[in-house]
């Protein structure tokens, strides 16, 4: 696995959550890296264009436009972009909509420790 790189864009309005994900990714090492962070939908789209990350880790519930809105915009521009919806509150409707949009995976925030594995699963080599 050495030499593989997997750069993630972290989108979450909560500062602690972004920090947690950043430290988790850094601690996991093994080529995982944080390309950038964004606090809302507008920042997310800007950072995505700017950094072209391998995976977008996207919170759904954010002020203004939601994570699903961001996903729709990104996937409209680049349909094969790998996106993981990382949400505190995943109901059936949200999961169905995410699936319909072409989001690769939905991960509950409670299962944050599975994020590194999910990043590799849906990362560039996948």
């Amino acid at each position: 696995m050495t030499g593989r790189s997997n750069r993630a864009l972290i989108v979450d309005d909560d500062d602690d959550m972004r920090f947690l994900l950043r430290v988790l990714i850094e601690a996991a090492n093994e080529g995982l890296a944080v390309a950038a962070e964004a606090r809302n939908a507008t920042e997310a789209v800007d950072r995505w264009r700017e950094h072209q990350p391998d995976v977008v880790v996207l919170d759904n519930r954010m002020p203004g436009r939601s994570g699903l809105d961001v996903a729709a915009e990104i996937l409209a521009e680049q349909p094969d972009q790998s996106i993981i919806l990382f949400s505190a509150y995943l109901d059936d409707e949200t999961v169905l909509r995410a699936d319909a949009l072409g989001i690769r995976a939905c991960l509950s925030k409670e299962d944050y420790d599975q994020l590194p594995a999910a990043l590799w699963q849906h990362g560039p080599a996948a």
Binding site: D14, D16, M17, L20, R61, A88, Y89, E110
Partner: peptide, 24 residues
């Protein structure tokens, strides 16, 4: 919805930070 989100975000953060500290 708000309370669920708040609680889950906070507890997840606390648990995550604690786990990072203990494991790393």
């Amino acid at each position: 919805g708000t309370v669920s989100h708040e609680l889950r975000t906070s507890t997840t953060a606390v648990q995550g930070f604690g786990e990072l500290l203990t494991e790393h």
